[in-house]
C-alpha cells in the first residue's frame, strides 16, 4: 500500500446511499497532495459517486445520504461548520460532458471570480489570460474572447471548462471522465494538460479508459460494485496487482 504522511483528501469508512440503495461500502482512502489519482472500475461501480462526494455535488440529488468521514486538509467536508460554497471554491470540478455557459469565453472564465466579489477589470483580464494559458487554450481563443463559447469545438469547450475551474484557484481539481466525449486528438490534448496541471494541483480523475489511467495518473484506485478493491501506485496496479479482480479488470476479462 501507499505510504502517506500528509494526504490532501482522506476518506474514512464511507458508506453512501441513493435512497435505500447502497452505492459505496466502507471506503477508506488517502489521496496525496500534488499528484494525479485515477479512479477506475466498470460503470456503476461507484467511482463517480465517490468523486462527487468531495465537492458535495451529490447534495443536489434528492434522497442521498452517507456515513463516515471525508477530510480536506484535515477539516471535515461534511462537517456542520463547513461552508459548501467555500468548499466548492477549494475543490474545482470538470464534468464528463463539457458544460460551458452560453456566454462569451471571457464571461465563462470570469463567472467564478465575479461571483466571489472580484470587480477589478485589470485583475479579471489577467485571470482570464492565466487560466486560459493554464488550460492550454490561450493561443487558440485569445482573438475571440468575446465570442460565444458554444461556438468552440468539443475539445476546446472542455479545456474552457478546465480553465473556468482554474480561474477560481482551487486546491483540488476533480475530473469526471473529462475526455470520454472527445475525439482522440482532443483527448491527447487534455491528457497532456493534466500532466502540466499536476505540478500545481491535486487531481482526482474518474476514467473508464485503462490506458488513460495508466498514462496520466500517479496512483490508481480500482472500484468494483461500490467497494474499493485495490489502491496503489499506478505502475504497481497495472504491472503487479495484488487482487485477482483488479487483474481481471485491467486485462479486460470483464467490465
Amino acid at each position: 500500500m501507499v505510504d502517506f504522511t500528509n494526504p490532501k483528501l482522506l476518506a474514512e469508512n464511507i458508506d453512501f446511499f441513493y435512497g435505500k440503495k447502497q452505492a459505496l461500502f466502507d471506503i477508506n482512502m488517502a489521496i496525496p497532495d500534488k499528484q494525479v489519482t485515477a479512479l477506475i472500475g466498470p460503470s456503476g461501480c461507484g467511482k463517480s459517486t465517490f468523486l462527487r462526494m468531495f465537492n458535495r455535488m451529490n447534495d443536489i440529488i434528492v434522497g442521498t445520504n452517507h456515513t463516515g468521514k471525508l477530510l480536506l486538509d484535515g477539516t471535515e467536508i461534511y462537517g456542520p461548520e463547513t461552508n459548501v460554497v467555500q468548499l466548492r471554491r477549494d475543490i474545482g470540478m470538470v464534468f464528463q460532458k463539457s458544460n460551458p455557459f452560453p456566454k462569451s469565453v471571457y464571461d465563462n472564465i470570469t463567472y467564478g471570480p465575479t461571483i466571489h466579489g472580484q470587480k477589478d477589470k485589470e485583475v479579471l483580464n489577467s485571470i482570464v489570460e492565466e487560466s486560459l494559458k493554464g488550460a492550454a487554450l490561450w493561443h487558440e481563443v485569445k482573438d475571440r474572447l468575446h465570442d460565444n463559447a458554444m461556438g468552440l469545438s468539443g475539445g476546446q469547450q472542455q479545456r474552457l471548462c478546465i480553465a473556468r475551474a482554474l480561474a477560481v484557484q482551487p486546491k483540488v481539481l476533480l475530473m469526471d471522465e473529462p475526455a470520454s466525449a472527445l475525439d482522440p486528438k482532443s483527448t491527447a490534448h487534455i491528457e497532456e494538460l493534466i500532466g502540466e496541471l499536476r505540478k500545481d494541483y491535486t487531481i482526482v480523475i474518474v476514467t473508464h479508459n485503462m490506458q488513460q489511467a495508466s498514462r496520466v495518473s500517479d496512483y490508481t484506485a480500482f472500484f468494483y460494485e461500490g467497494v474499493l478493491i485495490e489502491f496503489g501506485e499506478t505502475t504497481q496496479i497495472f504491472t503487479n496487482p495484488e487482487q485477482k479482480r483488479t487483474e481481471d479488470y485491467i486485462t479486460g476479462r470483464f467490465g
Binding site: 455535488m57 443536489i60 470540478m93 464534468f95 460532458k97 467564478g112 461571483i115 473556468r164 477560481v168
Partner: peptide, 15 residues
C-alpha cells in the same frame, strides 16, 4: 435549462 449549467455554476462555488 440543462442541469449541466447549474452543476457548473455550483461547482465553481456559486451559492
Amino acid at each position: 435549462v440543462p442541469m449541466g449549467l447549474r452543476e457548473a455554476s455550483l461547482a465553481l462555488g456559486a451559492t
